[in-house]
């Protein structure tokens, strides 16, 4: 039997006591795709990732992973790997020992050491391979966790917040590893609160809220769900720009003059459809006002997230107040 779906979930539900973690989740993820999973705290992301890794089984519905029905704990195919809620490493072992010990579990003796070093190199940890993991930063642990998952040569890689604690260089390295994997045909499920990561990496995203799927599809389609966005406008003449904005049809001024931070004293925040923003630009140019910056206050995906999950304005997906 052959299939093109790496994951196929129909009506999957899971409860913990009185708490409904997943409530009739449908999900289709094609093979070779990097798929984002996003949602506020308590949305059911971790539970869903746990089901995908085989750490638990659904109470209801059906789940197929890599074409194989999953009906029992740890019953997922052997080519599923990843981590949820932290990479799970042994602090008393070095980075190399962690990977070597895991590799020995798998029993691939031929070229094991070379393979371990190659993986360490791939995630940028070759230079600290002999250091105990207890001294590693969060970002280094995340990268080592990714290398540990790659030991299993996964066809489905499930990662929970893999970019946590990563510096820009580390993030680029992880992104490259994931895109290489996807290009080689593996499927990557990526849970993250960082919308910029999802936007940069994912072909499609699934948005969960209170255990239900509120959106699943291409990133660009999610962006369209965001409605009118707040835009930050910085010009050469703040006073003039304010008057122009007030006079632009279908555009409202949300804030201006010290509303954002001390550094934003000269910025305006305006809200309206794309056509109104275009009209604003034309009018500012006509008025001889130079536009130094015009962009969404909150990124597109984040705005869509807030709109679809019903979260309050100014609240980021991880529950913290937006600056």
């Amino acid at each position: 039997m052959q299939s093109t779906a790496a994951i196929r979930a129909r009506g999957v539900s899971k409860t913990f006591g009185d708490v409904v973690a997943l409530d009739g989740v449908d999900l289709d993820v094609p093979a070779g795709q990097i798929h984002g999973l996003v949602g506020p705290n308590g949305a059911g992301k971790t539970t869903l990732l746990g089901l995908l890794l085989g750490l638990a089984v659904a109470d209801g519905g059906t789940l197929e992973i890599l074409g194989m029905p999953v009906g029992r704990v740890l019953g997922v195919p052997g080519s599923v790997a990843g981590f949820v809620e932290g990479p799970g490493l042994y602090p008393t072992l070095t980075a190399r020992q962690n990977l070597a010990a895991l590799a020995s579990l798998r029993g691939t003796t031929s070229g094991r050491a070379a393979h371990v070093d190659e993986l360490l190199d791939r995630v940028g940890l070759r230079e600290v391979a002999g250091e105990p993991v207890r001294g590693f930063s969060l970002g280094m642990r995340q990268r080592l966790g990714l290398a540990a998952a790659l030991l299993w040569e996964p066809r489905l890689l499930v990662l929970d917040e893999p970019a946590n604690g990563l510096d820009p260089a580390g993030k680029r390295q992880v992104h490259r590893v994931l895109t290489d994997l996807a290009e080689a045909g593996a499927t990557v499920i990526l849970s993250s609160h960082r919308m910029d990561d999802l936007a940069a990496l994912c072909d499609e995203v699934t948005l969960l809220a209170t255990g239900r799927v509120v959106f699943s599809g291409p990133v660009r389609k999610l962006a369209a769900e965001s409605g009118d966005l707040d835009h930050r406008l910085v010009t050469s003449d703040p006073e003039g720009a304010r008057e122009v904005a007030d006079g632009t049809p279908s555009l409202s001024r949300v804030a201006g003059g010290g509303s954002l931070s001390r550094a934003d004293d000269d910025a305006l925040v305006v809200r309206g459809p794309q056509t109104a923003l275009d009209e604003l630009v034309v009018r500012l140019v006509a008025a001889g006002i130079a536009i130094r910056e015009l962009g969404p206050v909150v990124p597109l995906l984040e705005s869509a997230f807030l709109a679809l999950t019903g979260a309050d304005d100014g609240v980021t997906p991880d529950g913290e107040s937006a600056r």
Binding site: M1, S3, P30, L66, P77, G78, A101, L105, G185
Partner: peptide, 24 residues
């Protein structure tokens, strides 16, 4: 995106006891 055909993977087999014992 080109659809990728998946072979159904073989059944899952736990790691041999001697390997997990050595790991511990």
């Amino acid at each position: 995106m080109t659809a990728i055909q998946l072979e159904v993977p073989p059944p899952v087999r736990p790691v041999a006891l001697r390997r997990s014992y050595r790991f511990e």
